[in-house]
């Protein structure tokens, strides 16, 4: 895939604080990319630099081969949606959506109607933003951003100000809209669930650097760094030892299927759902004592300590198909080795 948007070497400092330290990122045409990270990681700054609302100290931004890095926003061809909607309060919905349209009145009215239908708000042209709910306002903002048919759509935490239910609903519609229009989209979010469910590609950021760029599956199952593994989803980090022969041992018990690694101390990354509870005791299985159980709806999360190394505590998700456990039970554990990753002890 050829890159539609390519960012290279972006650096941004605010006084002594380095918000972005050399970001390189490519986005293919029609791709939905999520910039994911904790607050203060620089994701919004990066988006604002792409939008031309902030000036980078170094680096270039190219769209379709054209260097737009120093152009004013008006010459960059994108639409943008902010968390707080930023609608023009004194203009009605039609005035808001049609703000960027420089066409005749009739043509504008047609286009506005079309866009409102697209976002599911047909017929609300004459309403004012204050008469709409948060979700409706954000749809208007989306229609306004799409009105000029920009080649790039920038979304800055567009769903964060909404109620949980509206958020999930609008998320689904956003996905459908993207599939329908095929517009290259960059969305900033701190909500991993949102990023994983919406994006073709997730770019995880921390402290002004890109930690990992990959598909949601890669990000979730093959985190490139302990930060990514820790930020996205829940995870266990038991200390393990790699033997001289390269095999991995947890509490003296070899974990099969992990391959060979350089000898020494290390940390094992495993998600709660990737640890299985067995029914039969086998001689090569780890035994764990159930300390407490937490009901989370679809799953119950058990906190267990290993029988031979009680200082190692693991969280294990139990689904409907798993055996019913009670506190104090001693159970054998099995690991889905293809989902585990080993990180050096210092990196964690």
């Amino acid at each position: 895939m050829s890159e539609f948007l390519s960012i290279s070497g972006i650096v941004k400092r605010f006084g002594g604080f380095t918000a972005l330290s050399g970001i390189d990122l490519g986005v293919a045409k029609g791709e939905f990319l999520c910039l994911l990270g904790p607050s203060g990681c620089g994701k919004t700054t990066l988006l604002r630099i792409i939008a031309g609302l902030e000036t980078q100290d170094a680096g270039t931004v190219r769209v379709a081969g054209r260097d737009i890095g120093r152009l004013p926003p008006a010459r960059r061809d994108y639409g943008i949606v902010f968390q707080n909607y930023a609608l023009f309060p004194n203009l009605d919905v039609a005035g808001n959506v049609g703000y960027g349209l420089r066409t005749g009145r009739a043509e504008r009215r047609g286009r506005v109607g079309e866009l409102l239908e697209l976002v599911g708000l047909a017929g609300s042209e004459a309403k004012y933003p204050s008469q709409l709910s948060g979700g409706q306002q954000q749809r208007v903002a989306l229609a306004r951003a799409l009105a000029t048919s920009p080649s790039l759509l920038l979304l800055d935490e567009p769903l964060s100000a909404l109620d949980a239910k509206v958020r999930v609903h609008l998320r689904r519609e956003l996905k459908q809209l993207h599939q329908k229009l095929g517009i290259t989209t960059i969305m900033v979010t701190h909500d991993q669930e949102e990023a994983l469910s919406l994006a073709d590609t997730v770019a995880v950021m921390d402290h002004g650097t890109l930690e990992q760029v990959g598909t949601p599956e890669q990000i979730y199952h093959q985190p490139a760094s302990p930060f990514v593994a820790g930020f996205v989803g829940h995870s266990n980090w038991p200390a393990v030892r790699v033997r001289e022969d390269g095999k991995v041992e947890l509490a003296g018990q070899e974990i099969p299927g992990l391959g060979r690694h350089p000898a020494g101390a290390a940390r094992l990354f495993c998600r709660p759902e990737d640890i299985r509870v067995g029914t039969h005791h086998a001689h090569d299985q780890l035994l764990a004592l159930v300390q407490s159980l937490e009901f989370l709806g679809p799953v119950r999360r058990a906190t267990m300590s290993l029988e031979w190394a009680p200082e190692i505590v693991l969280q294990v998700d139990l689904g409907a198909k798993d055996p019913w456990l009670a506190e104090g039970d001693l159970v054998p554990l099995a690991f889905a080795a293809d989902r585990m990753r080993l990180f050096s002890a210092e990196a964690v």
Binding site: A51, G52, L53, P72, P73, A74, R75, R76, Y78, G79, I80, F82, N84, A86, L87, F88, P89, N90, L91, G95, Y99, G100, A141, R144, A145, A147, T148, L154
Partner: peptide
């Protein structure tokens, strides 16, 4: 809201239009 101006700039409207209309 300051983002109102940002949006207007992205919609390729000069500031005086936003000033006069909003």
């Amino acid at each position: 809201d300051g983002e109102v101006e940002s949006v207007a700039r992205s919609l390729r409207r000069p500031w005086w239009t936003t000033c006069a209309r909003v």
